[in-house]
Computed example of a mutant assay.
Amino acid sequence: MNRRQLLASVAALTTISLSVPAWAQNEPLKVGFIYVGPVGDGGWTYQHDQGRQAIEAEFGDRVETTFIESVPEGADAERAITQLALAGNKLIFTTSFGFMDATINVAQKFPDVKFEHATGYKRADNVATYDARFYEGRAVMGTIAGHMTESNKIGYIGSFPIPEVIQGINSSYIHAKKVNPDVEIRVVWAYSWFDPAKEADAAAALIAEGVDVILQHTDSTAPLAKAQEAGAIGFGQASDMSNFAPNPRVSSIIDNWAPYYLDRVGAVLDGTWESKATWAGIGDGEVEIGEITDAVPAEVKEAALALKDQIGSGEYHPFTGPLNKADGSEWLAEGQVATDEELSGMNFFVEGITAQIPE
């Protein structure tokens, strides 16, 4: 994790500018997308594809977009990205953490193609990275969860034990604990971004442990369906998942990628594209909170929305001390705020979480 933290720090401090001409207007800019799940997953990939469609709506015949869905992370990703490059796509978005090395490898072979990798930290002259501060939305969800649990046990379905996911678990627990000192959090790892069967099994395992509120960092609606069966509540992940509202889905964390995609396509078209690292959140409109339903008491809804506004304005940071690590050692002193470098390399749970992070 130290290597990741160092690279993330470099990415945050360095911007590589490219001198590029404006796009020739007599031919459309071909823009390709690589998705880890199906466009109909109702979550992560669905939201990225909404961004792709926003590109078409905004730029019309100046662009031509295409996508390859359900691409496994690993060797298959490198083949799929290469396929898009060979097909003439001059801007390629690779939309999952596990596509990182494949993106860098293909970018070395196609220096005239610009690549954008979501949630990663490796960059090059023709590779930019972009991410969302999901932990901000998790703070709001955690606040609702802490208020709503009757068993004082909330559950979290994690995909992979990477900093982005660990941030979300910590943020959810910290803010649930703030409003409910008796709350506990149970964590189950699915080891997949999108696998409805595994996600349903994970939700069932949590419910069997007495959990009555489920959060997730996986992409399907399967945990909500399982929560519905058991009389538990849950939250939309990545997209609104409003088909499960007003109960069990009581709110959602929504990834709004469209503004970023419009900005980056526009930059290629006008010749101002540059390789940089972007990490946006609630205040930027990239992380949104879905409607909080009437299943949530009015005073809880008010508290959650007040927290959202405080985070969005910069008045409050979800990782503000005093906070200790799970082993009891001090992490953040009273009033101290975590740096982006610390968050980018997060490899520990905060005090009070008894779950283990897999190696």
Rank of each mutant, 00 (worst) to 15 (best):
S9P: 00
P21F: 02
Q25M: 02
N26D: 15
L29Y: 10
L29K: 07
K30P: 08
F33D: 05
P38Q: 13
P38M: 07
T45V: 06
Q47M: 13
Q47G: 05
I55E: 07
I55F: 06
E56R: 12
A57L: 11
A57N: 13
A57I: 02
E58P: 01
G60D: 04
D61L: 01
E64S: 13
I68F: 13
I68N: 08
V71P: 06
I81P: 05
T82F: 04
I104K: 07
K109C: 00
G120M: 05
Y121M: 12
Y121P: 03
Y121D: 11
A124M: 13
Y135I: 01
E136S: 05
G137D: 07
V140E: 05
I144Y: 03
A145D: 05
T149H: 03
G155M: 09
P161H: 10
E164Q: 14
V165S: 00
W193Y: 14
A205W: 06
L206F: 08
H217E: 09
T221Y: 12
A222E: 09
A222G: 03
L224E: 03
A225L: 12
K226F: 01
A227P: 12
Q228C: 00
P246W: 13
S251Q: 07
I254H: 10
Y260V: 02
A267M: 09
V268E: 13
W279N: 13
I282Y: 05
E286K: 12
V287R: 04
I292P: 07
K301P: 05
K308L: 04
Y316T: 10
F319L: 03
N324Q: 13
K325A: 01
K325Y: 15
A326M: 06
D327L: 10
E330G: 12
L332M: 07
A333V: 03
A333Y: 10
E334N: 11
G335L: 09
V337N: 04
D340L: 14
L343F: 11
G345H: 10
N347A: 13
V350N: 04
V350A: 02
G352H: 10
A355R: 04
P358V: 10
